[in-house]
């Protein structure tokens, strides 16, 4: 990830952070990605609650789950825990 490196005069003192982690995408870490089956999904939201990366988002407006592949690291916890068997892990590029 290329980025501009600043000089000591141009950064805050004491190591105060100046970028949100949400600008650092971790989605390219994964080998497997979760595929969500809305038909099977009961919208219990367990997957969203237990995702270590807050990558399963709940759209309040249309009451839908959205998988954010920019951050999903492909751990597969969601698929393992889904009580409705509504999430499958597939190899990246095959989904």
């Amino acid at each position: 990830m290329s980025r501009e490196l600043k000089g000591w005069k141009d950064i805050p003192i004491a190591g105060v952070c100046w970028k949100p982690a949400t600008e650092y995408l971790t989605g390219d870490w994964k080998t497997f990605k979760p595929i969500h089956d809305p038909e099977k999904c009961t919208k219990c939201l367990l997957c969203s609650l237990i995702c270590p990366d807050s990558a399963i988002k709940w759209n309040q407006a249309n009451e839908e789950l959205m998988f954010d592949y920019d951050f999903c690291k492909g751990c597969g916890i969601c698929a393992n825990e889904c009580p409705a068997d509504a999430i499958k892990m597939v190899r990246e590029g095959e989904g």
Binding site: P20, A21, L25, P52, D53, S54, D68, F71, I77
Partner: peptide
């Protein structure tokens, strides 16, 4: 938030 660099499947995260 997202974008932290814990390993995939990290329990503490």
């Amino acid at each position: 938030t997202s974008g932290h660099r814990a390993c995939a499947g990290c329990g503490p995260a």
